[in-house]
Computed example of a mutant assay.
Amino acid sequence: MPVISRFYGIIIRMYFLQSEHNPPHIHAIYGEDVAALEIQTGNIIEGYLPPKAKALVQEWMSIHRDELLNIWETQNFKSLEPLE
C-alpha cells in the first residue's frame, strides 16, 4: 500500500485495488490507530482515529480531494504535500 503523505506522525496510504475497495478512500495510520476515510466526505468508514488526528487528516483531505480522487481513478501513484 503506497504512502501518499506523512505529517504530524500520521501516515496516509491508499490501496489500488478499486474493485475490492469502494467507496474511494484513504487509510490513515496514527500510532496504533488506523482508519479508512471516504475521500468525498472525509467520514471514517472503518476504524478509529483520535479526534485531533482525525481533524488533521480531514483538513489535509479537503486540500487534496481532487488529487486523491484522481489517484484513485487512474491508479497513478504520486506523493502529496503534507499538512503544514
Rank of each mutant, 00 (worst) to 15 (best):
E84H: 12
T74A: 06
I39E: 00
M61K: 04
N76M: 07
Q18I: 07
I71T: 09
L49W: 14
I63W: 05
G42Y: 02
F16S: 05
I29H: 04
P2C: 01
G47N: 08
E59S: 15
P23W: 09
P82Y: 02
D33P: 00
E73Q: 10
Q40N: 13
L49R: 13
K52Q: 14
I12C: 01
P51N: 08
W72R: 09
Q58W: 13
D33Q: 15
K52M: 09
E38Q: 14
P51Q: 10
V34K: 09
A35W: 06
M1P: 03
S19A: 07
W60T: 12
D66E: 15
A55S: 15
I29L: 08
I11C: 03
S5R: 07
F77R: 09
I71S: 07
R6G: 00
Q40S: 15
P23N: 08
Q18S: 12
A55K: 15
L69H: 12
Y8H: 08
A35K: 06
S19E: 14
S5M: 06
P23M: 08
W60R: 13
E67R: 10
I39S: 01
I44F: 08
G31Y: 03
N76D: 11
Q58K: 15
L80T: 03
I11M: 06
H25C: 06
P23Q: 08
K78C: 13
R13S: 03
I44E: 09
A53G: 05
P82Q: 03
L37A: 06
A53F: 05
G42F: 00
E59T: 15
S79N: 12
L56F: 06
R6F: 02
H21L: 04
V34D: 10
K54V: 00
L56K: 09
Q75L: 11
M61Y: 01
E20R: 14
I39W: 02
A55E: 15
L17R: 08
G42N: 02
W60I: 10
A55T: 15
E67D: 14
Q75Y: 02
N22M: 11
S19F: 02
P51A: 10
A28L: 07
P24S: 12
E67Q: 13
G42H: 03
E73V: 04
N76W: 04
E20T: 06
V34P: 01
G47I: 04
I26E: 03
S62D: 14
E46S: 12
Y30Q: 08
R13H: 01
I10R: 01
N43K: 15
M1T: 04
P51W: 04
R6I: 04
P82C: 00
I29Y: 03
N22I: 07
K54A: 12
L68H: 05
P2V: 00
H21I: 00
L83S: 13
D33V: 02
I45M: 11
L49K: 13
E67P: 03
V57D: 05
E73K: 06
L69Y: 07
K78H: 13
Y8P: 00
L68S: 05
K54L: 14
I12A: 01
L56T: 00
A55C: 05
I11S: 08
L37R: 11
G47P: 04
S5D: 05
P82E: 01
L37K: 10
E20P: 00
I11Q: 13
E81V: 03
G47K: 13
K78S: 15
H27T: 12
I10A: 01
A55D: 15
T74E: 07
I45R: 11
E84D: 11
N43F: 11
I12E: 00
R6K: 14
I12H: 02
R65E: 04
I71Q: 10
L17C: 05
G31M: 04
